[in-house]
Simulated scan of single mutants.
Amino acid sequence: MNDPFETIDPERLRSGYGVKWGSLPPGTIGAWVADMDFGVPPAVQESILRTTRQADFGYPHWPGGDPVIEAFEQRMLTRHGWRPRPGRTRVFSDLLQILQIVIEYATEPGDGIAIHVPAYPPFLASIVRAGRRIVPLPVTRGDSGWHLSHEPLREQRCRLLVLVNPHNPTGRVLSREELRSLATLAEEQDLLVLADEIHADLVYAPHRHIPFASLAPATITATSATKAFNIAGLRCAVAHIGSDRLHEALERAPLDIFGTPSILSRVATVAAWRHSDAWLTALLNTLDHNRHLIEEWAAALPWDARYHSPQGTYLSWLDLGGESLERRARVKLSEGAEFSQHTEVDTSAFARLNFATSPSNLTEILERLTAALLGGWPR
């Protein structure tokens, strides 16, 4: 059986509807938006094809309960050792929708919302659009890697903390001790925590993902199968509402604001969480190989790229001197300045590189970047 992660088909990626490759000029490699260049697990593909063969595109009906919720609860218990509270999980379209609803129902205009910066750019934009105030928590670099500080929470009054773990873009995975300390601080400050754990299944040994709600039961946990199983465009996510106050508020909210993810998105999510772990294991082997390729490449640069190999995710955060490389290298990365927008933090020297691609394509990306960074041109 062929390794599905050994090679990719750029023509397939360019000819489809995906923004990662389809929005780029011919000859430019996409290494920016957080999609993978691989396909999807066989079980996911078969679940979609089965639904298509049945022409089953009506309004969803789950007489035995929503299968996404059941699959989520089982996965959290069996893979991550956390038992969600029954009746506290809702299905949404994506994490941005979850964030927006939590902001609207748990905070007021002008309230402070804390988040580690650099941060996922749409989260920063969402906070600002809602009329709330970003309280940036520093991400600092030490000898052993990136450190996510929580100390400003003791000094600044915030209503909500958006905790992204594993962290995007640095790939940092917080330890149990760090999370326990944060849980204590959140309780002291009466601080609501929204834990974005969408990359939980993409963690490299010996690191381990610890659900924050297992230490702080009032947490809102937001996650999805979309990152680990490459189905972002299908739009299905879940939120476990640990906070009694927020749970009661959402129970009173109009149902229409939550939306109804499709049958396709639900059957794909269930197939991913229930039947695709062998595919995930093989994927992680390739990603682990790729992150070490980048580590070796960064170490050979003639300047300190301030790089630490990510402990989770398929994203690398590198200091490339603020160079605009897309035209010269014909590689599109995510520009670092986007990850600190609407704050006084300066991340303009950095870029985020998505390494969820074949080793051969990653090698081509790194060779092009080397030629551009060191003054040459790619062949």
Rank of each mutant, 00 (worst) to 15 (best):
D3V: 08
F5E: 08
I8E: 02
D9I: 00
P10V: 00
E11D: 11
R14G: 02
S15G: 10
G16S: 05
K20P: 06
V33A: 14
P41I: 00
P42E: 01
A43E: 14
T51L: 15
T52G: 10
D56S: 14
F57E: 09
G65K: 10
I69N: 08
E73G: 10
R79Q: 11
R85C: 00
R90K: 07
F92V: 03
S93T: 14
Q100E: 12
I113K: 02
I113S: 00
A119W: 06
I127P: 11
V128A: 12
V135F: 04
T140M: 09
E151S: 13
L153M: 04
R154A: 11
L160N: 11
L163G: 05
P166D: 09
H167K: 09
T184H: 13
E187A: 13
E188Q: 15
D190T: 12
P211S: 07
P211F: 05
A213H: 04
A216R: 08
I220E: 07
K227R: 14
A228G: 07
I241H: 02
E248L: 13
L250M: 13
A253K: 06
D256P: 00
G259I: 02
V267D: 06
T269V: 04
V270N: 08
L280A: 11
T281I: 08
D288Y: 01
D288T: 13
A298S: 10
A298L: 06
A299P: 02
P310R: 10
G321W: 09
E323N: 13
L325K: 11
R327T: 14
E335M: 11
A337D: 14
F339S: 12
E344A: 10
T347N: 09
A349T: 06
T363G: 08
E364N: 02
T370R: 14
A372I: 04
L374I: 03
P378V: 07
R379W: 12
